Simulated scan of single mutants.
Amino acid sequence: MRLDLDSVTVALDGRPVLDRVSLSVHSGQFVALAGPNGSGKSTLLRTVYRARRPDSGTVRLDGRDLWSVPAAETARHTGVLMQEQHTGFEFTVAETVALGRTPHLGLFDRLTRADHEAIDEALARTGLTAFTARRVGELSGGERQRVLLARALAQRPRLLVLDEPTNHLDLRHQLDLLELVRDLGVTVVAALHSLDLAATYADTTAVLQDGRLVAHGPSAEVLTPETIGAVFGVDATVHHDEQGTRFVLRPRCVCPDEPCHWSCRTRRRAEVGADAR
C-alpha cells in the first residue's frame, strides 16, 4: 500500500505541530521517522491512521484521500502500535490478539477458521504461542508490547504504523521485532528513537525537526554528522562498514577551547570536583 502526505499541517493551540510535511512511502517500503521529542513524529503517525485530521494538506492511501475512504475500510488495511496503547489486563493473550480480527467482522459475526489461522500465525511470529492462556496483566512490559504487535499482525494489514515499537523490549526482542516487521513485506512507517535501529532496518529515514521534514532518503545519506548535530544538538561520528552503520554520539561541548576534544570534559569534571572539595 502506497502512502503519500502532501503539505500536511496540524496545529495545536495555534502552534504548528506539523508544518507542510510532504512524504511519499512506496508500497512495501519501511520508513523510519527520526527526530527529538516534540518534533512531530507521533502527530504525523496519528494523521496516517485517522486519529487526527490535518488542518490542511492531504493524506492518501493508494492515491485515495484517507478521509474519503470509509473508516471501516481503512481499519482493515492499517495496523497500529502506539506508545501508550492499553488493553484489558483481565483478557488472555489469545483474546487480546483475536481483537485484531475485529475490523474484518460484522456486528454479529463469529471468528472463522481463516480468522483463527491469522491469530495463530501472529502468535507464532511474535513468540507468544506458549502464552495464549495467560492474562495480559501478568506479563512484563516487553511481553505486553509483543501482544499488541501480535494483535496488529492478526489484522493482516497492508500498512503498519508503529510509534516507538521497541519501548520496554530488551535488546534481543528489539532486534527480533524489527526483523519481523521488515520481513512482512507490508508498508511500514515507524517512529524510532534509536538511529542505529533506523539505519539497520529501515529502507529510508525521514528526519523531523520542529514539525518540519528536514531530510528524507537512504539512512546512510540522511543520518550524517551534520544533520544529527543540527537536529539533535549532539556531536556524532558515523561509521560505515560491512557490518552496517554505527553511531557514536556525544553531548556537544560548550567549553571555549578550540579545537574541543572529548577529553576536556573529563578534565573539566575533575576540576569541578576538586573545587567542590
Rank of each mutant, 00 (worst) to 15 (best):
D203V: 05
D176E: 15
L169N: 00
Q145R: 12
F247K: 07
P16R: 04
Q209E: 10
E90K: 06
R269V: 09
T92A: 01
V136A: 08
V161P: 02
D257E: 12
D120Y: 05
E179Y: 07
A198P: 04
A122S: 05
S140H: 15
D13N: 11
A118V: 08
A130W: 10
R252A: 02
G244D: 07
T126S: 08
W67T: 02
D109W: 07
P36T: 06
A94D: 04
L45M: 06
A276D: 03
T74V: 15
A276Y: 04
E271G: 09
L18F: 01
A206W: 05
G185C: 14
G100A: 05
C255M: 07
G79Q: 00
E221R: 15
V248C: 12
G127A: 15
V10I: 07
A270H: 15
T112Q: 07
F131I: 11
L180P: 10
E179R: 09
R60H: 02
D203G: 01
T224S: 08
L128E: 10
V48E: 06
Y49N: 01
F89R: 12
L149A: 05
P218K: 14
E95W: 03
A152D: 01
E226P: 06
L123Y: 02
M1H: 12
H240W: 12
V181N: 13
V147R: 10
R110W: 06
R110Y: 06
L153T: 01
R158D: 11
L213Y: 05
A270T: 14
R182Q: 07
D109K: 11
G79T: 05
L149V: 00
G185D: 08
Q174H: 00
V25E: 14
E121F: 11
Y49G: 02
D203I: 08
S56G: 12
L249P: 01
D196I: 00
A130C: 08
A11Y: 09
T200L: 02
H26A: 15
H216F: 04
G217I: 14
T43C: 10
V234N: 01
V214M: 05
G35K: 01
P16L: 09
R53V: 13
Q243N: 14
E117K: 09
T205D: 09
L160A: 05
T47N: 04
T205H: 07
D235N: 13
S39L: 12
D6G: 00
V231S: 02
A34L: 03
D183E: 15
P157I: 10
G141L: 06
V188Y: 14
H77C: 13
E73W: 09
E242I: 09
G38P: 02
P165V: 10
L23C: 08
R246Y: 03
E226T: 13
N37I: 03
V214G: 05
V10S: 03
G14M: 09
L33Y: 02
N167A: 10
V31P: 08
A202L: 02
G217W: 15
T96S: 13
L23W: 06
